[in-house]
Every structure is written in structure tokens, then in C-alpha cells.
Simulated assay, not measured.
Amino acid sequence: MKNWHVDDVMTTSVVTVPEEAPYRAVVDLLIRHRLSAVPVVDDFQRVTGVVSEADLLRKIEYAGDEKPRLFEGRRRRGERVKADARTAADLMSVPPVTVLKGTPIPAAARLMEREGVKRLPVIDDLGRLVGIVSRGDLLKVHLRPDDDIRRDVEEGILRIYLAENVLTVKATVADGLVTLKGHVDRWSTADIAKRLTRQIAGVVDVVDELEYDYDDSNVLGTGIAYGIA
């Protein structure tokens, strides 16, 4: 069963700007490529920051407003500095929100949500840019064919974790919805199958129609007790 990472869905041809790129060059680049943000890289292709449309708009927002206001907060002062910026190095937001190559897709999705960003530069262990992944890219896992998902369930879960019951359990998949049907020895076996199936890339949900002989839920409590998150 394949574990999907950002490497599997990222774009490797990334539009970037150098730190010394002039303000107008960055504006032109975003408009020409229809982007809302662009990574800033140094001479070694290491990501040093990100310039977004919001960063660029500070020059318009504070146009003609030369004097800072009394008791102005730190965020407003930072925005005012960007209004006077002339290069990408002065405009960019730092530190950049990036993700390491090999990061699982769910972890990348949680990082995007937590940081409130729409895309993540993907870097290697040395901080060098190797790709970029967007929210739309992460959703590509849900375009996987149903047959591929079913094969993952059968080979990666049923034959490994339900080896003794593999002949009595059947998995069907329709539009990413997995139905597990059949007979197993105990509740915990059915629960493990359901939990692991839900973690397969492209699975929308799991319908549990498994029957079991012995209910050991009171003994084990939850899946955490036997190592399934």
C-alpha cells in the first residue's frame, strides 16, 4: 500500500524570484502567471521568504501616509515598512512556511490550515526548493481510480491485518466510498480494518458492514489501546 506524500502531487516547475528582484518585477510576475504568491530564493535556491499579493498591496494601502500613527502596533509598523520596500527581500514574509520533501499529505494539509496559507514551498534537507504544493494539489488523491483504492484495501490491509479472515471479507469501492462486508472473529478486528482503510489515500469514507462473533470493545476500550490512532 502506497503512502502518499507531497512529492507525489507537488508541482516541480516553480516560479520564483531572487531576493534582489524589484517591486514592479514581482508584480509583473504574479499577474503574468496568475499567482497570488511567489517564493523568494537565494543563490543556492534556498527559500528565504514568500511575497504575496497582500505584501505588495501595502504600497497602495499606505500611499501618501508618511507619518506613523500614535501607538501603532507592531503588525501595522511592519506593514508600513513593506509599503516603502523596493525589492523582494524587503517585501517578503519571513520566516517562510515550508514543508519538507517526504511529508505525508495529511500533515501538509494540517500545516496549511494552521498557518492559513494556500500553498507550501517544498524543500529538501538543505532548505533548497524542490517544488510547491497547493490545496488543489492535495485534493488530487481523491481522483484516484476506485480500483486502485480497492487494491490498496485488499493487499495493504485485508491480507496483512485480516489474514485469517481474508476469505470472508470483501471490499467494494464506489466514488471513493469503501464498503467492508463480511465476517470476522471479533469487534477489534473489524475496528482495525475500518480505521486503517480510512487512512488510505483517496478514501472518502468507510461503510462498516462487518459482523463479528465476539465483542471485545469493553476489554480494549478504543483503537488507541492496540496502537491504532
Rank of each mutant, 00 (worst) to 15 (best):
205 D>R: 13
42 D>C: 01
169 V>E: 02
57 L>D: 01
221 G>C: 12
227 G>I: 08
63 A>F: 14
166 V>G: 06
87 T>K: 07
154 E>F: 09
214 Y>I: 05
69 R>T: 09
210 L>H: 05
39 P>F: 07
225 A>N: 13
141 V>Y: 05
136 G>D: 08
184 V>Q: 07
78 G>S: 03
174 A>S: 13
7 D>A: 13
193 A>D: 08
188 S>W: 10
127 G>Y: 11
113 E>F: 12
32 R>Y: 09
90 D>L: 05
206 V>T: 03
95 P>A: 08
178 V>S: 11
178 V>P: 03
201 A>N: 10
137 D>L: 02
149 I>L: 12
67 K>H: 12
139 L>N: 04
12 T>C: 07
120 L>Q: 03
139 L>P: 00
150 R>M: 06
110 R>V: 03
93 S>T: 05
200 I>E: 12
8 D>R: 11
183 H>D: 10
119 R>P: 01
139 L>H: 04
33 H>D: 03
132 I>R: 11
96 P>V: 07
3 N>L: 14
204 V>E: 15
165 N>V: 06
190 A>D: 05
32 R>K: 14
140 K>A: 05
146 D>H: 06
150 R>F: 04
4 W>H: 12
38 V>N: 04
158 L>R: 12
66 E>H: 14
53 E>S: 01
83 A>L: 06
192 I>F: 10
93 S>C: 01
165 N>G: 06
143 L>H: 05
143 L>C: 02
22 P>A: 15
162 L>T: 02
56 L>R: 03
153 V>L: 14
14 V>N: 04
202 G>F: 10
48 T>K: 10
211 E>D: 11
9 V>I: 08
97 V>L: 04
199 Q>W: 08
195 R>P: 00
172 T>W: 08
172 T>K: 11
46 R>D: 01
39 P>W: 10
64 G>Q: 14
182 G>H: 12
94 V>Q: 13
176 G>E: 01
117 V>I: 06
95 P>V: 03
96 P>F: 10
29 L>K: 15
190 A>T: 02
140 K>S: 07
143 L>V: 01
226 Y>K: 15
164 E>F: 07
141 V>E: 09
